[in-house]
C-alpha cells in the first residue's frame, strides 16, 4: 500500500465531505451573518480538499488530479471518517459535528505542521490557521446553544448524543499512519486524543452539556465502509463528471 497516498487521501476526503455539507447551508442559514460565516468555513475546506487531493494524486503517481480524486472514485474508495458525512439536520447538529471535528483537526494540524514531509507540513501550517478560527466559531456556538434556551439545550444535547458514536473513529490508526510515523514522514500522534478530549470536556462543560455514557463507537469510513449518506453526497458531487465524462468546465 502507498501510505503517503492513503494518508493524504484521508485528510483530503475529510475536508471534502465536511466542506460539502457546510456548503449545503449557503443561502439557508439562520441569519445572514451566519450564512456568510458558514460559507467562509466551507470555502476553507474546499481549499484544503483541493490541496490535499492534488498532493494525494502526486503521491499516488498515476497521473490523477485532485479533481479526478474528488469526483471520480466509487464510494468504497472515499476514506473520510463517518462523522463528516453525517447530514446537517439543523444548525445545532451542524455546529456540534463541526465542533467535534475542529477539536480533532486543531491538534492534528499542530502536529502535522512539523512533519518532515514538507508538502504535508505546508498544507497543515496553512490549514491550522483556518482550523483555529473554525474551532473558535463552533465552540462559541456550542456554548451559546447549550447554555441558551431550554429548546436549544435539548436540541444540541440530542445532537451530541447522536454524533458521539462517530468520534472514536477520529483516532483510528492502522498500518498507514504507523508506517509513516515509523518512517519519520509525519510526527507521532501521541496525546492527540487526550488533547481532543480536554477541549471537548471544557467546551461541553461550559455549554452545560453531558457527554453520553455509551461508549459504543462506529467506524468504517477510513476503510471505505460508509453510512448511507455518502451515496447521496456522491450523487450530487459527481453528477456533472459522470454525466459528461472527460470534459473541461
Amino acid at each position: 500500500m502507498n501510505s503517503l497516498f492513503e494518508y493524504t487521501l484521508r485528510l483530503g476526503d475529510d475536508s471534502l465531505m465536511i466542506g460539502h455539507r457546510l456548503s449545503e447551508w449557503c443561502g439557508h442559514g439562520p441569519i445572514l451573518e451566519e450564512d456568510i460565516a458558514m460559507t467562509n468555513i466551507a470555502l476553507d475546506f474546499v481549499g484544503q480538499a483541493t490541496s490535499l487531493l492534488e498532493l494525494a494524486g502526486k503521491f499516488e503517481g498515476k497521473g490523477r488530479s485532485g479533481d479526478d480524486l474528488a469526483f471520480l472514485r466509487f464510494d468504497r474508495d472515499y476514506k473520510n471518517v463517518l462523522l463528516v458525512e453525517q447530514p446537517n439536520v439543523d444548525f445545532g447538529v451542524t455546529m456540534m459535528r463541526q465542533f467535534l471535528f475542529d477539536a480533532y483537526r486543531k491538534p492534528l494540524f499542530e502536529r502535522l505542521q512539523y512533519a518532515s514531509n514538507k508538502e504535508i507540513a505546508a498544507i497543515a501550517e496553512k490549514s491550522l490557521k483556518e482550523t483555529k478560527y473554525h474551532l473558535r466559531h463552533s465552540s462559541e456556538w456550542v456554548i451559546r446553544l447549550g447554555d441558551g434556551t431550554e429548546e436549544s439545550h435539548t436540541r444540541i444535547q440530542e445532537a451530541l448524543d447522536n454524533l458521539w458514536r462517530y468520534t472514536g473513529e477520529l483516532f483510528y490508526s492502522d498500518d498507514v499512519d504507523k508506517e509513516l510515523i515509523a518512517a519519520g514522514e509525519i510526527p507521532s500522534m501521541d496525546g492527540l486524543e487526550k488533547e481532543w478530549r480536554q477541549t471537548v470536556n471544557e467546551v461541553l462543560a461550559e455549554a452545560t452539556l453531558k457527554i453520553p455514557e455509551s461508549d459504543w463507537q462506529f467506524d468504517g469510513g477510513r476503510k471505505g465502509m460508509h453510512s448511507e449518506h455518502l451515496g447521496y453526497i456522491l450523487t450530487e458531487l459527481q453528477y456533472m463528471q459522470r454525466a459528461y465524462p472527460g470534459l473541461e468546465w
Partner: peptide, 11 residues
C-alpha cells in the same frame, strides 16, 4: 460582542 467580532471578520 464575540459574535460581532466574528461576524465583522466574516462579512
Amino acid at each position: 460582542e464575540e459574535m460581532a467580532i466574528d461576524n465583522a471578520r466574516d462579512v
